[in-house]
């Protein structure tokens, strides 16, 4: 298991390197316009453009450019010119607790509800309960996040004033922290909960037809034990995959809409800002940062996978 984990982590590092090169090439080589010009902003003086050119290494060879830029981004020296000269890395680091609070809370909610609903649905497949849950899940899936968030904001904070309007409160005051996050959590979780419940339902229905489930029943295990230990456990494998991807995307700055609408100044919020300003260094940093999390969580998923399915673990160590 350890051997497997170490190998996967090394693999992840290689992938990250490849991604950073790719991002670098897309941002620097592909566009036709002068990259320094774009970094400096629309109203930049020729002098500023010169400085930028030097700072970002555009006067050097491509590998050197890559090196300079990555150094800027990873050592926390990259500054944004369009966004009031803020330090990009600091801005991202500040955003992480906010985004993490949002994503972890939402993830707990969506996993709990997704699994619960999927389970209920699969256990009653074809019945009334199943149809009811299906409708709920489909509503959840088809409700746009911005719409749901706006409805929440309008009715529950503005009209009824049940929840504080928006913004983030640090965890040092847990009550306040939670009350500020509860609506964003729900808005973000609804879509995923609905989606996961569908995936789990179909996965469970597949597993229920597996021969080994029949074996489990033939052993005289209780219905409950069969469904939990044999059906549910084996059905969670696709859910783990999805979760790794989704969670990586969100924490890497993908919760753009939720963060923006609820005024949570997390990574997604910053991404939105950067996109709005077409701020080239920030977009590049956020992209690499996002990729980092996606790869990281995929690696976790692989490791979790290996835990859930011994064939994968042992298969790799036998090769």
């Amino acid at each position: 298991m350890l051997r497997f984990a170490v190998r996967r982590l090394l693999g992840a590092i290689a992938v990250l390197f490849a991604i950073s090169v790719l991002v670098f090439l897309i941002f620097n080589v592909v566009p036709a316009t002068n990259p320094a010009q774009r970094i400096a902003g629309k109203n930049a003086t020729p002098q500023l453009i010169k400085n930028v050119e030097k700072e970002w290494g555009f006067d050097k060879s491509l590998p050197e450019q890559y090196w300079t830029q990555m150094k800027l981004i990873f050592t926390g020296e990259a500054t944004s010119y369009s966004l009031a000269h803020i330090n990009i890395d600091e801005r991202i680091l500040e955003g992480i607790p906010v985004t993490a609070s949002l994503c972890i809370g939402a993830a707990i909610i969506w996993l709990a509800f997704g699994i619960l609903l999927g389970y209920i649905s699969a256990m009653n497949a074809g019945g009334l309960v199943d149809r009811f849950v299906t409708v709920i899940a489909l509503i959840g899936i088809s409700m746009p996040v911005f719409w749901l968030a706006s409805i929440f904001l309008y009715y529950l904070t503005y009209k009824v004033e049940l929840f504080p309007a928006s913004g983030y409160e640090p965890l040092s005051n847990p009550g306040k922290w939670a009350s500020h996050l509860i609506l964003p959590w729900i808005s973000l979780a609804v879509l995923f909960a609905g989606f996961y419940s569908r995936v789990l339902r179909s996965s469970m229905l597949d597993v229920m037809n597996e021969d080994y489930v029949r074996t489990a029943r033939a052993k005289g295990l209780s219905q409950r034990r069969v469904t939990v230990r044999h059906v549910l456990r084996n059905s969670l494998i696709p859910i783990v995959t999805l979760f790794g991807l989704d969670f990586g995307v969100l924490i890497g700055g993908g919760a753009i809409i939720t963060e923006s609408l609820f005024n949570l100044e997390g990574v997604g919020y910053f991404t939105a800002e950067a996109l709005g300003q077409q701020d080239f260094p920030s977009i590049m940093a956020v992209t690499i940062f996002g990729a980092f999390f996606i790869v990281l969580f995929n690696t976790f998923v692989d490791i979790a996978y290996a835990y859930l399915d011994p064939r994968i673990r042992l298969g790799t160590s036998a090769v």
Partner: peptide, 22 residues
């Protein structure tokens, strides 16, 4: 459930798929 396994046991046809892989 009380009958299965303890009074009537069954061995299934396909050994490749009849055991839970995990």
């Amino acid at each position: 459930q009380k009958v299965r396994g303890s009074q009537i046991a069954m061995i299934f046809q396909d050994p490749m798929t009849s055991l839970n892989p995990v």
